[in-house]
Amino acid sequence: MDIILNTLITLSALGVVLAVILFVVAQKFKVIEDPKIDEVEACTPGANCGGCGLPGCRGFAEACVKAETLEGLYCPAGGNEVMKEIADVLGLTAEEKEPQIAVVRCNGSHDKRRKTTTYDSALSCAVSATLFGGDTDCQYGCLGLGDCVEVCTFDAIYIDEESGLPIVDEDKCTACGACVTACPKDIIELRNKGKKSRRIYVSCVNHDKGAPAKRACDSACIACNKCVKACPFDAIVVENFCAYIDYEKCKLCRKCVEVCPTGAILELNFPPRKVKVENTETSEIEN
């Protein structure tokens, strides 16, 4: 009986003492935080993708609460809806942004870009890029080792086995930009999603002159300027031997796609053309 009593007394005493210590410490080191931070954080997607440029969703929430206006603060993963929610909580106005999506600007699949060497080091694009231009003759193209896949927190990009190129899952991609910074070749770009997800872009970033570019890759942009002439809206410029379509100016007329001799310009999510049969590359990307 004594033993039980002693044990009970000791344990209860211990419990009380510890509780007091905990209480005192909790009071003394209490961090006063704006409850709005929690509210704002609840609005965010909570993926901690870093797309806003701040350390995690909590960091973003803190920055939002601290800031006078929401200018320059934008959650790409959440998009306009989340920003509107946050703005409502804070009583501010959020800037509206056109929804964006990551596009991979390389079309050099295995069959179009011949391998000239065998790469045998750590399987990382960044490691490979410090070593050489790539295992094909094109030193600008995708290395296909999947650094973009690794950094994607939304599981929205994967390497297609057949072509060896990364493919963006349109439903999952939030345009957080993690893959854009991860890509050592600067191939991935965030572009406006466009109406009904329709997009046209030059799927090539090489800076070689036409002849060597064509030699290295069948679907390289050879800077022939045909698309520039075909474009009725002056949306296309050729710089450093590579065409670029400004997505702000592009009206999705698809004229450039028709004239491109190498198929370097891709169109996504368009209905099939009336005259011609849908070309195969487009449907491959769609899948």
């Binding site: 060497t117 790469y119 045998d120 070593l131």
Partner: peptide, 8 residues
């Protein structure tokens, strides 16, 4: 043959 490229 295709040369192997690897880091030192």
């Amino acid at each position: 043959n295709k040369l192997t490229v690897s880091m030192s």
